[in-house]
């Protein structure tokens, strides 16, 4: 078994400005704010010296309190962010569902969005044609697939996004708290699909707040807190320690 993902001493810091990320000319010139901004800019370390590797076919649950760096970690692995230092190696095609439905073009139909989404993931036109039926069927959007996605409900959005992410035949799937979303029927279907992924030996990274899922479904659990790895290991053990810590903090 190869390693699907390797992180070596990965740190990520963001420059945080007190106001906002971009500048306007007015800020720079009229208010002379540019200098002030540069001076006041703080570096926020979202991840600090994170090293771990994930073997192919592993389902890794990632737990931790809000702001622990969980989503940043997935974005780094997906290649959306670049690490400030350290190295990340990823073997295989990555599919990521980080923020539901975003990345759709509202004026285009569901079908057109599937084509663009598939091409963005790196599929060929033929592969998309082959997967199209399955994506639509899985999302249960047969009747509205040629309507602009701005007319979709948020549930339909979510189903389409999930269906694309799991049907582009990824080797590595990155999921950010999605299993909890959707109605009972679709949640059940998604769970079944994830189970199938797991059995086919795909690598899955799942950020979750649901400790039962982390414990019951994942092969390994990674506990992040304040950008550092607190523990990585057997689900029961890590989750138990995490529970203890949380209770201790709350109590």
């Amino acid at each position: 078994m190869r390693d699907a993902i390797i992180l070596e001493h990965v740190s990520k810091s963001f420059k945080r400005y007190p106001t906002r990320g971009y500048t306007t000319l007015k800020d720079m010139l009229v208010r002379g704010e540019w200098l002030r901004r540069v001076r006041s800019r703080q570096h926020v370390e979202a991840l600090k010296d994170v090293s771990f590797s994930v073997r192919e076919g592993t389902v890794l649950g990632i737990i931790g309190p809000n702001g622990a760096g969980k989503s940043t970690l997935l974005r780094l692995i997906a290649g959306i962010y670049r690490p400030t230092s350290g190295r990340i190696m990823v073997n295989g095609r990555v599919s990521a569902l980080l923020n539901l439905g975003l990345g759709f073009h509202p004026e285009l139909s569901g079908r057109e969005n599937i084509v663009i989404g598939g091409l963005a993931y790196g599929l060929s036109r033929r592969e998309i044609r082959r997967a199209m039926g399955e994506i639509i069927a899985f999302a249960e959007l047969e009747e509205v697939i040629d309507a602009p996605v701005r007319t979709y409900s948020s549930g339909m959005f979510m189903r389409l996004a999930f269906s694309i992410a799991v049907n582009v035949d990824p080797d590595i799937l990155l999921l950010d708290e999605v299993l909890a979303v959707g109605d009972a029927h679709f949640a059940e279907k998604s769970r079944a699909r994830m189970e199938e992924f797991k059995e086919r030996g795909k690598t899955i990274l799942l950020v979750t707040h649901d400790l039962a899922t982390a414990q019951g479904w994942c092969h390994q659990v990674l506990w992040l807190d304040q950008g550092r790895v607190v523990a990585l290991g057997a689900p029961a053990e890590v989750v138990a320690r995490y529970r203890g810590k949380s209770v201790a903090t709350v109590g």
């Binding site: 959306i80 975003l102 990345g103």
Partner: peptide, 10 residues
């Protein structure tokens, strides 16, 4: 922006 922030998009 929506593509670049949330998806693997070149």
């Amino acid at each position: 922006a929506a593509f670049l922030r949330n998806a693997v998009f070149p």
